[in-house]
Design a protein around this nucleic acid. Sequence first.
DNA 1: CATGAATGAGTTTTCATTCAT
DNA 2: CATGAATGAAAACTCATTCAT
Lengths: 217, 217, 217, 217
Amino acid sequence: MVNISKVQQAAVLLFARQGFAATGIRELGGAAGINSATIYHYAGSKEELLVQVMRSCLDEMITSGAAAMRISAEPTIQLAALVSSHVGFTATNPLTARVAEYEMRALSPDNRTAMQKLRDDYESLFAQVVERGIRVGDFSTDDATMARLALMEMGTGVAHWYRPDGRLTLIEVQHNFVAMACKILSANQTMLDGIDYIRPPVVVASEPTGTSVTISG
Amino acid sequence: MVNISKVQQAAVLLFARQGFAATGIRELGGAAGINSATIYHYAGSKEELLVQVMRSCLDEMITSGAAAMRISAEPTIQLAALVSSHVGFTATNPLTARVAEYEMRALSPDNRTAMQKLRDDYESLFAQVVERGIRVGDFSTDDATMARLALMEMGTGVAHWYRPDGRLTLIEVQHNFVAMACKILSANQTMLDGIDYIRPPVVVASEPTGTSVTISG
Amino acid sequence: MVNISKVQQAAVLLFARQGFAATGIRELGGAAGINSATIYHYAGSKEELLVQVMRSCLDEMITSGAAAMRISAEPTIQLAALVSSHVGFTATNPLTARVAEYEMRALSPDNRTAMQKLRDDYESLFAQVVERGIRVGDFSTDDATMARLALMEMGTGVAHWYRPDGRLTLIEVQHNFVAMACKILSANQTMLDGIDYIRPPVVVASEPTGTSVTISG
Amino acid sequence: MVNISKVQQAAVLLFARQGFAATGIRELGGAAGINSATIYHYAGSKEELLVQVMRSCLDEMITSGAAAMRISAEPTIQLAALVSSHVGFTATNPLTARVAEYEMRALSPDNRTAMQKLRDDYESLFAQVVERGIRVGDFSTDDATMARLALMEMGTGVAHWYRPDGRLTLIEVQHNFVAMACKILSANQTMLDGIDYIRPPVVVASEPTGTSVTISG
DNA sequence: CATGAATGAGTTTTCATTCAT
DNA sequence: CATGAATGAAAACTCATTCAT
């Protein structure tokens, strides 16, 4: 229970830095402080290790996102909660999130299908909010799809630069992104006044701790 | 002159699909229709092939972006031109752009430093526009850095979904992104009325043609 | 402990026959009865395998030679003991000795420097004996350096033709070489009467056994 | 006629330094100042280039050695002439001689047989002289074969250390070796007084010029 | 004569994985 | 649980050689 996280954290750290394909199983063992053969006690293969990490990451994103949407029936508040959740998760688990995003291509067809399904489920949360906001007249945009994609891309980008000890607190970043999202969708930001739509983000087991790594590219 | 593009296009296609590390030199040869050993006539190593591709991509992005900024002294028009250039390039050369972005980590330290320098040069174009727009009071945002990063991230995301034969023309997409950019920076979009800030994007030699590949992840 | 000798013996056998550069790692594995990849458990590289062999060979030559010189303070007896040791070692470990001599050039600069140092240490034993013998008037020659080199070259040549089951016993060969050495240096052979200056030579772990190979060239 | 020597000299230089197997055809071209493909105008293969060099070297050694033996019918004078010739040739063509000796093993069976035949022919000159000198009572040794081998080995060793600009002139070295040979065979050196048994050595076309290379090993 | 381009077979080394201990 | 040893397959890269120009 404690060791498996160590392995997953080592995996995420190295996969994020170098990519799945460029990371060897021996390297993983070394980073986790165990013999490389021992990894096969925790995961049947290198790919399964990646799948474990991706699945728990996407599961948590979906769970948090769905919970965020349940705090209100108002599209604008749902949008704020969802964007906050997304940005919060991404900023809190930057390496895991990055791996879950980048390494889809490393999966074999079966696993890829399964993981893509989870990602699609997650993205559909955004699609639902945007679509309903437009339908009820709270949002307005030239192109709903493009707006949604831009929204997510932006939020995901947080993983590239956010640092807990940086210039801005996480909450500031979240508010900022909510503001940008509202602008993009021409939503009325004042609807959010006095609403506490931010939930503290979960730290997933696979996220390395104490590593302030700079990942380039 | 014709062969080297063929090799580069094969490289970009496979690097974009599978990643640099997961692409073999034999695979590259096969995709380019030549013996794998022949690749070493065009590039001293697999990494050098990647560097060639990245360098020409980043060079072109910088050239186009700098040219875009010269069409006017108005920050809003510069912003529109720069965003259009970025989106246009990314949509026209999605695979090359993707490789140039994703595979920075695959480079050895020396090459990485050199390529990162080019990317920094390019990003500084955005920083300059945003900073000047704010200074002269044409733009307004809670956080300039975050806005700039969101702007670029958004535009880069185009490579993930834009298809020439898709629902929207490139020009529509460009206008749309310019609109979103203006919203994010609270810029006055009417300043763009009647201004032709879009230049046709260049197709770089390494961009595969006739491939409507779907890249996931 | 048993396997590493097997690998080293295979290496020495093939390196002696064909040379280091002309011997493949697969060939080595085949000769040692193991998979070629397994060789990398015993040595980090093909060159390291060579270094292992050379180092243990030269270490043993130095140890034996130094011991030989300690059996007496008389230059003539030291000469006899050193020549016997050299000839004995070379005849007992012909392939290893040959590899240690011929393949110096196959080493990378760092390893070459280290191995050359060992060889220089060994050769200096001969230089010391010859020099002291001349100084105290026991030896006489037109040119000390040339005599020493000729002495060593001669002895090393034993590896090219000596066979344990040949016409002469090892002890006969040793006595013969001692006689030639004395002639070259005009030393008084009668000083050796009744002196037992021959020690049984050591068989190094890398010397192939049961192989009556003819090495040409 | 001028170019073929250049190629052969480059070959000898590199083969002596690194060995035949470790020398690439491109490297040879580079050292000879021509394209690697052009080498195939001068020799049908890398091995043929080696054969050319070895054959002309051994031919010249046999010719010179045979001529040396014709200067007298006296075994002692023949010995002096043959040893002088051997040492002279080896010191004058150290790299070529070294290649001809070391790289026999690099040859394919057919070529090896042919070259070994030449070497055997050459060695038989020494065998003849020693045998006849013993038969007529001019020489005396415990073991004729061993003496002959030691004699040749010693002389060949000259290639390892002799330098034209060194401490000793070639003639001094030759006289020295003749003296050592006489000692080994207990021949009467005074028989050589006043006899001019030294012929100036030939420089073979393949011997690199102006290169004072140190070859280790 | 000379060469740049090309290639199939080869090189050393690393890979993910298995298994006896 | 943990590991050192082992391995077949594959990695990137180099090889000697050919040939059209």
